[in-house]
Simulated scan of single mutants.
Amino acid sequence: MRKTTLPQQPALDRQRIIQTALDLIDTQGLAGFSIRQVAKALGVYPTAIYWHVPNLAALQAAVVAHVQHGMMPSPDLASWQDWLKQLLHNFREKVKAHPNTAPLIGAHLSANSEVDLVQVEYILGKLQEAGFVMPALLHAYNTVVAAMTGFTTLEFAAQPEDDMENWQQQLQHRLDTLESGRYPVLASLLPGVQNQGFIFRWDNGKQQPMDTSFDHYTETVILGLEQLLARQSTRPAEEIKA
């Protein structure tokens, strides 16, 4: 009788754990996401996961870093403006591919030991190349990181996972029954902003991307940085306070 050989599972390692966690977040969302879920998907006990990541927060941070990997634009782009614009677009595409990670981005990007420091080096280097010097360089860097995360995390913000249809209907009903006397500006603009503008959306970027608004947003950020750079050249450094 021939002995059946079961297929050998890949060795458990940190990268496999992170990829499995991302797969679960992609398919099931963040609600109820846990180390136990990851362990079950990998066919191991939770204690095996803790050999590679110390806790759930560390695993989430590693997932955020994994999603962002490879987003740096080519250094050969013609101008620092083009480079930064491409960076913002690249980041958005990364989150668009894994929209359920959007709620994690702000929490785990502001201070994340998992973030690839090469990314930070590239951004600082490109701003320095543009002509920024401290302390304006710091302000420009903070602006870029905030710009990179802010619009996109709002665009792909999580929707209620329980009774979403009812939540959407309630939001639509509230806008449909808006008191025009109390909110005259909003009422007059409502046909153009409902489900299109932040606060008035019942679909997020997965169902209805905000491509045109994002293009305007990136243009505004770049123009603002250009103004900061120009102001820096006409003011003493000590006047540009943190």
Results as ranks from 00 to 15, higher is better:
R2D: 13
K3G: 12
L6D: 14
L6P: 01
Q9P: 12
P10K: 13
I17H: 00
I17K: 03
I18V: 12
T20Q: 01
T20Y: 02
L22Y: 00
L22C: 05
D23T: 09
L24K: 01
I25A: 04
G29I: 04
A31F: 11
F33A: 03
S34V: 07
K40S: 11
G43R: 09
V44R: 14
P46A: 09
Y50D: 10
W51L: 13
W51N: 12
V53D: 02
V53Y: 07
N55D: 15
A57I: 05
A58N: 07
L59Y: 07
Q60P: 00
Q60A: 02
A61N: 06
V63Q: 01
V63N: 00
V63H: 02
V63D: 02
H66Y: 06
G70C: 08
M72E: 14
P73D: 01
A78Q: 14
S79T: 15
S79G: 05
W80P: 03
L88H: 02
L88T: 00
R92H: 00
E93F: 04
V95M: 09
A97V: 09
P99R: 09
P99V: 10
P99E: 14
A102H: 05
A102M: 10
L104P: 10
L104S: 13
A111T: 14
V115Y: 13
D116V: 10
V118P: 01
E121Q: 15
I123V: 14
I123Y: 04
G125T: 09
Q128F: 15
Q128W: 08
A130E: 12
F132Q: 06
M134I: 10
P135I: 01
L137V: 14
H139F: 08
A140C: 02
V144D: 03
V145K: 10
A147I: 03
F151N: 00
T153Y: 10
E155D: 08
E155C: 05
A158F: 02
P160D: 10
E161H: 09
N166T: 11
Q168H: 07
L171V: 10
Q172S: 03
H173K: 06
T177Y: 06
L178C: 12
S180C: 11
G181T: 06
Y183E: 12
Y183M: 08
P184W: 09
V185P: 06
V185C: 11
A187V: 03
A187P: 05
S188G: 06
P191C: 04
N195W: 04
Q196M: 04
Q196P: 00
F200W: 07
W202S: 00
M210R: 02
D211L: 07
T212A: 04
S213E: 09
Y217N: 01
E219W: 05
T220N: 02
L223E: 04
L223S: 02
G224L: 00
E226I: 08
L229D: 11
R231W: 01
R231E: 05
Q232M: 07
T234I: 12
P236D: 15
E238F: 06
E238S: 06
E239A: 11
E239I: 03
K241Y: 09
K241C: 12
